[in-house]
Computed example of a mutant assay.
Amino acid sequence: MCASGQEALSRIEEFGPDLVLLDVMMPGMDGPQTLKALQQRPEGLNIPVIFMTARLQPSEIEEYRSLGAIGVIPKPFDPMTLADDIRRLVADHPER
């Protein structure tokens, strides 16, 4: 877990995640800016990305997907079903 987008950029190699879960609203770099920065690394970003947000207008969701996210989990979310929600999104996008 990282407290900011900048921390995620500096630590991603260290922990080699299988998935990136980004809040849209974060301190410093927001979620979309963080995703773009992760994608611009020389090795790119070849793992699934999911955004979490309360901003759920269809145009906003389309923007997150156009950035490369496989989906969006609405906030507030149910912590009891979060893992299942993530699994469903990953299963729906096997190419990632």
Rank of each mutant, 00 (worst) to 15 (best):
K36T: 13
E95V: 02
Y64F: 15
L82G: 00
M25C: 08
P76H: 07
G71P: 12
P42R: 05
I61D: 04
Q39T: 03
P74K: 06
K75A: 11
L89Y: 03
E13S: 14
I47E: 11
M1I: 13
A91F: 04
M1H: 14
M26A: 09
P32T: 09
Q39L: 04
F77N: 08
M26Y: 01
G5I: 06
N46S: 08
A8G: 08
R41V: 06
S4V: 03
G44V: 07
I61M: 10
D85F: 10
G71E: 05
G68I: 03
D30Y: 10
F77Y: 15
D18L: 09
K36Y: 00
C2E: 05
R87D: 12
Q57E: 15
Q6P: 00
F15N: 12
I73L: 13
R88G: 00
V90M: 13
L89R: 06
M26F: 05
E95D: 10
T53V: 05
P79K: 12
P27V: 04
P17L: 07
V90K: 07
T34S: 08
L89G: 06
G44I: 10
L21T: 07
G71F: 05
I86K: 08
P94N: 00
T34V: 13
R41A: 08
I12L: 15
E60A: 14
I50V: 15
N46Q: 05
R65E: 14
L21C: 11
D85H: 13
E60V: 15
L82S: 02
I86Q: 02
I70C: 01
A3Q: 11
I47F: 10
P94W: 00
K36N: 10
A54M: 04
S4T: 13
L45D: 07
L35D: 04
D85N: 15
I86N: 03
A83T: 10
S59Y: 01
N46E: 06
V20M: 11
P74F: 01
P32F: 09
D92I: 08
I50K: 08
T81Q: 02
D23I: 11
V49A: 13
P32A: 12
D85C: 12
A54L: 04
